[in-house]
Amino acid sequence: MKKFRNEYTKETLILPIILIIIWYIVCDVFQLIPSFMFPGPTDVANSFVRLAVSGKLFKDVFDTLYKVLFGMLLASVVGITFGIILGWSKRLETLCKLVISILRPIPPIAWIPFSIIWFGIGIGPAVFIIFMGCVFPILISTIDGVHRTDPVLIEAAESFGASNSQMLTEVIVPSSLPYIVSGLKVAIGIALMCTISGEMIGSSSGIGYMILTSTSLFDTGSTVVGMLVIGIIGIIFDYIFTKIQERIFW
């Protein structure tokens, strides 16, 4: 079936290298842009070394990842469970349809005020926002996966005498798995975005917080380090989910 290509070859390195060279020439060699406006590669490298050596970078990365994974876990449990139930029962889906359609387009950040009122400070608000951002894509793709179960497979299982619960565990769930994983892959990107935004507003830790505070201290080097780290975490998650998809797309 479908092949998921995710190969970073030598060619994919060409453009980043060219961009870094141009960046270096513009910012460091000719100093066309003052570093409080945008740092050069040297500033970024210095900031990186400083943050890495002090251990602050790893603490912030860990902090952010912890929230992302915790929020994702909650969203997955709720999204997958309800996705299977709603996908399975036409009546329940109809019942919930409008509520889902209204809640879904609300940007997760719009929940920030309530998240602070309800969960105060600490990781609570961030986890809640991640949850709100991730639960709908997971829910929708799970429902979609259940709907796309080949009716012939359902009938085949029926002709072997499968009970309703066996139908669920032996046919519906495995057959929706590829769609569920696609939903998770989309959700993890959203989770990263939510975390960073959340950390910039209602938090005192994590990469988002680091980005914000370092900019206000004119340490734009650290800001860029934070941004690049997010990008790299994104690539890693993407790679992991692509590997999982390769395994389960038969």
Partner: peptide
Amino acid sequence: FIFQNYSLFPWLNVIDNVIFGLNIN
């Protein structure tokens, strides 16, 4: 019931497909 089109479970290998009904029961 044996269907006109292929109706194997794509996530199961051949032997697990064959014993699907036995497992269910």
